[in-house]
Design a protein around this nucleic acid. Structure first.
Lengths: 131, 131
DNA sequence: GTGTTTGCAAACAATTTGCAGAATT
DNA sequence: AATTCTGCAAATTGTTTGCAAACAC
């Protein structure tokens, strides 16, 4: 049986108030402000617990760091390959993506992740200035 | 200017003959059979070089290991969250996925990755037998 | 000959784990 | 009291890097 934990609540609360998609390190840094004794190990342990409970979602963009998202309703992400930022992509409430699956595909799909990528506006602006 | 390398050719050839999506370790193990002195560092160096040349693609499924795919034409993947296998998902040649982007989304999309997940048939069969 | 690539080993970064003590039920 | 959770530190894993020698041009 799962017991209450102040640390886990703080982690969950922090993720729920964020619009961006913090890494474990960012969660650690922030939660530590109100909870100075928390350890990085505890952050990781609780993040994976919350993921397996389905309360949060783990986002992987292939840059070597996992990000976490308290929004588990179906939505996509846009990853700037220049600055690393990950933002939400607005989409219709019910996605037509299942239609993309060929009818001959035999596996049971429990979910999916979609990650758009490119260089974001801010980065383009900066590059224009720098030359 | 880029120079020829026997090791790089072997890595590329191996990836091109595979239908699955090998990890760096798997590439290393296999290329070593014909090329016993190759080092894992060289494998990694060439894999990222090939990725940045756009000759192969890196697939990240959030299980801590990167996979590589010589098929760079747009297609999706199915990841069995039980056995870790990654297989191709057949799809129409030209994908309607760009339509999913809200028209108000301001960023320039250079590409995207889609990863379906679930527990594959084989794993379900095995679980049924085990109880 | 010059510049790129390699093998090797050490370094690194992100995440996981073992354990004794603290907190929750 | 029993069990889960924590902090700490060490361990592990996947990947990157520095360097001298080997190779391609």
């Amino acid at each position: 049986m799962m017991k209450y934990s102040r640390q886990r609540e703080a982690i969950k609360a922090y993720l729920m108030e964020r619009q961006d998609h913090p890494t474990a390190e960012m969660v650690y840094m922030s939660v530590r402000e109100t909870n100075p004794k928390i350890s990085l190990g505890t952050v990781y342990r609780n993040l994976s617990l919350l993921v397996s409970l389905g309360e949060i979602q783990k986002i992987c963009c292939g840059d070597g760091v996992e990000r976490y998202d308290a929004n588990v309703t179906p939505h996509y992400h846009y990853h700037c390959t220049n600055c690393g930022r990950v933002v939400d992509v607005p989409m219709e409430q019910v996605s037509p993506i299942q239609m993309l699956l060929g009818e001959d595909f035999p596996e049971e799909v429990e979910g999916y992740t979609v990650l758009f990528h490119g260089t974001c506006r801010d980065c383009r602006e900066k590059e224009k200035k720098t030359g």
